[in-house]
Amino acid sequence: MERIVFGTLPYDVAHLLGGAVLLLSFTLLSQRRIAATINTYALQAVVIAASSCWQAYVQHAPHLYLTGALALIAKGVVIPLALHRLVRRLRLSHGVETALGIFPTMLLGVGLVTLSIMVVLPTTVQSQALTREDLALALSVVLLGMLMMITRTSALTQVIGFMSLENGLILAAVSVEGMPLVVELSVAVLVLVAFVVFSTFFLRLRAQFDSLDTRHLDRIGSAHR
């Protein structure tokens, strides 16, 4: 297995794909419409799949093709379609309600990327350059996913934030050589489970409040006081 070194094609392509995932995370943060958010998420999943396949090719690790296929089918096609259907079926509003404005959120996101680079690069001095870069990108994607979860009030966008966070995990998993397949599979299954859980949660929420806004849940909490 040849080393993936700086300046060669394998490195450049992997770096390009990782950067694209991060860029799409920022795009997710800046979306104001539900449909666009879902599409951006699907695009991110496709890029993850591409990144996964590229890693499978350069690492000569055929099991990563499986991961890529899983990501492409489940997250690039099935889940986005299901979410689109959900939006139509529940007749949700097309806008995204934000708890924090788009611009401050983006600023915070830039800060988080800086933080993750400052954490990852010094702590992984002994590792390959690509691993280090990819880990920094992956941590940024995870943090941006969390940021999305806390700056959106609608349950649907929170779920998308959660799944984008999971994309970051996959990116980290595929960019490290020798990671066994079991991990990716379990992570993918986890997302599906979370999807199911959140779907039922949507339905119940819809049935009770005629809205998907989690602020209604807060009102239940405050009723206990």
Partner: peptide, 10 residues
């Protein structure tokens, strides 16, 4: 104890 879901996440 009575934080909202989003506050707990935050």
């Amino acid at each position: 104890q009575f934080l909202t879901v989003r506050q707990i996440l935050t």
